[in-house]
């Protein structure tokens, strides 16, 4: 039942998504946009919460971005939230606290801000058989499965062994660039 989303609703979503992506939020024709460019266009800098790339649908965010995400035919995949409820903070309870819609493509005053971009280098491995390190920050991205498994996961970062649920047992997050020196 949860999966059988009304077809008409899907069509409406698809139309809304298309209308929205044509609204200048992400510049350039689709063919010229790499996934990394699209990703960057939705963020002020790598680590900033992405803006919402579609118009408001008048539904709870979790309707599509729940535990497993939803495939919208012809449009794409609404990924699940990568946030786990962190100790002491109801991080996932108020999506709009951090993620905002775009009401306009205009700016108030032009900006010279240049933010940190996504580091597209692969996480380092000691040898080809060793588990790669996590090359990105993990705060509020605790649910690895949200991006690394399922239909939302791009092939290049898709996990080959999702049944092993304790990811950080083998993959560690890089915290510093310096090597240990005694």
């Amino acid at each position: 039942m949860r999966r059988s989303v009304n077809r008409a609703l899907l069509a409406a979503l698809a139309a809304a998504l298309e209308a929205c992506s044509g609204g200048g939020a992400e510049e350039g024709p689709p063919a010229a946009r790499s996934p990394a460019t699209v990703r960057a266009a939705r963020r002020a800098f790598d680590g900033a919460p992405p803006v919402i790339p579609h118009a408001p649908f008048g539904m709870a965010c979790s309707s599509c971005h729940g535990a497993s995400g939803v495939q919208v035919e012809g449009v794409g995949y609404a990924p699940p939230s990568p946030h786990e409820a962190t100790a002491g903070l109801g991080a996932s309870a108020r999506c709009l606290q951090c993620h905002v819609f775009r009401e306009t493509a205009a700016v108030f005053v032009a900006s010279a801000f240049e933010g940190l971009r996504q580091d597209l280098r692969r996480g380092r491995r000691l040898n080809p058989l060793a588990p790669p390190v996590i090359p990105h920050q993990t705060l509020l991205r605790e649910n690895c499965a949200a991006c690394h498994t399922g239909p939302a996961a791009r092939e290049e970062i898709r996990c080959t062994h999702p049944e092993r649920v304790r990811c950080t047992q083998c993959h560690v997050a890089v915290q510093a660039s310096e090597e240990f020196l005694r």
């Binding site: 946009r33 790499s34 996934p35 990394a36 460019t37 790598d46 680590g47 940190l116 971009r117 996504q118 580091d119 597209l120 280098r121 692969r122 380092r124 090359p135 990105h136 920050q137 791009r154 290049e156 970062i157 890089v174 915290q175 510093a176 660039s177």
Partner: peptide
């Protein structure tokens, strides 16, 4: 060593970013 792990476009994008910001990551 880190031959960009993503698609062709991403690889080009990665090169552009490397040029602009020296391939920075949060640890840098």
């Amino acid at each position: 060593a880190g031959i960009a792990a993503f698609s062709c476009e991403d690889r080009r994008e990665a090169r552009r970013i490397e040029g602009a910001l020296g391939g920075l990551s949060h640890v840098d």
